Amino acid sequence: MNYQRQQQMQKPQPKYQFYATLLDGFEGYINSSRTYQEYWGFSENPSKTEEEFEQEQYQGLIDRINRVPFESEAADRGTAFNEVIDCIIENRISTTMEIKSFKESGVIAVHYKQHVFNFPFDICVEVAKYLKDALTQQFTDGIIETKYGPVRLYGYIDQLLPFKIVDIKTTSKYSAFKYQNNWQHKVYPFCLKQNGVDIDEFEYVITDFKNTWSEHYRFIPEKDVVELTSHVERFIEFLELNREKITDTKIFCLDAIEVVE
């Protein structure tokens, strides 16, 4: 038997596989009480109780695990804006949506799904210029060891620069360090390092289409791998407690290895 093939067969196969933003979804669920207090804690007549909000977050996470189709204008807007930036950086025409530039009116119009989004021309150019020459939509994955066995982590990096990973965020309202509890700035550097790419710097580029902001994070393996491992293990425990509700078995590596987010 070929030695390399034998080594591959002997290598432990992952029992779970999680894409980076799914870990964000789990983060949102376990912090649902904090989020509720932030938005409704001081309201005399909240539109929902804390228990109702937590149940919504729970069901939303289960649906996300099961890849239940859903419509989100905010998510579609973010996808459309990201495609505009990628097209400008790569000087290409989109193959997934219709994009037209109207310099005289200062907008870039995007027809995507059932929506038409009008993005400020100057914001699009500003962000694309800032990310000039970046590699876009770069897939990465890696294996993290946990007490429950090896787990595959994966995802698509929005923009990859020589010394920095960048993720674009669109929002209707921004507050400082809004994305500090996200896991992309830990998952992506971790995965890249496993593939021989040593990049510790991570930046979220954020816009509300009026202004732009940046959040910078540095991957510190000694600290971040420990935190990432703990979060992954908590998610595994959640999955096993709710296994009877999970219909999409890709997350348990029972189907083909997932290669798209």
Rank of each mutant, 00 (worst) to 15 (best):
Y58S: 02
Q13A: 09
G78T: 10
T229H: 01
K15T: 08
I93G: 01
D198I: 15
M97F: 04
L23I: 14
L23C: 03
P120V: 12
R92I: 11
Y3M: 10
T96G: 03
D198V: 01
T146L: 10
K129Y: 00
F252N: 00
I257S: 02
R34Q: 14
K186H: 01
S33F: 00
V197A: 04
Q4Y: 09
H115F: 06
L23P: 07
D224G: 02
F139H: 05
Y36G: 03
K48T: 11
V232M: 08
Q6H: 12
N66V: 07
N45G: 07
V151I: 13
E104S: 12
D224C: 09
T212E: 08
A134W: 07
N195R: 02
G25D: 13
K147Q: 06
G78Q: 03
F53H: 08
V225M: 14
T229Q: 15
K48N: 15
I246W: 12
F139N: 04
T212F: 04
F102Q: 12
Y29H: 15
K178T: 00
E44W: 02
K147G: 00
A128D: 02
Q137M: 04
G142Q: 04
Q13F: 02
I257N: 09
A75R: 09
E203K: 08
F163K: 01
P150L: 11
N118R: 00
F177L: 14
